[in-house]
Amino acid sequence: MGLAAIQAALARLAIDPTWRDRFYRDPIAVGAEVGLSPTEALALAESDRRPIDEFAASLHRKRRAQIRRTLPIAVRALGDRYGRLFDRYAHEAPPRGSRADLDDALGFVAALNSFPETDRPPWFPDLARYELAWQLAARTGIWPVVRLFRFPVGRLIHLPLAAEVTPAPTLAIWWRPSPRSRLRHVLFPLPRR
């Protein structure tokens, strides 16, 4: 069994539920997409599926916990809704990049805007972007990080999810005066258009 092909297949089975279902429906055709021979594809498809599903579920739980650690304020604000929103995001998006603690959080935050506002208040994506920007800025060295928000992000941290917030454009800047100095941060309220 070719190692590169079997590894590529296991990776897709683990991260992509749609590909997983397609593979088990038509292993020869779908396995060929990652280089499995018909014999290899059938051998993999005929082996016990349960451990593969458990492996995928374990990865799913790990990603969910990782984003919770990266964005504790945003996830706490979401409460019970977090699991549902994460499941929706993860079903569409495989794990991203090589920075496990950041790249998936970037994907989740980007996906928040596509979720209907019945599932989260309009200001929530700004809260998540703000929290994530802190993490990114901490790693960016002396290059400043600049973000524009629709809402007064400094206030959002303390709000319950049901709170109504009036949009108030806000500019946020993070920087380090030197590579070893502490991270600085400032928020500027901007005039409304």
Partner: peptide
């Protein structure tokens, strides 16, 4: 990592 995918696991 395999097939251009970082599994993260």
């Amino acid at each position: 990592r395999a097939g251009g995918v970082a599994i993260g696991h």
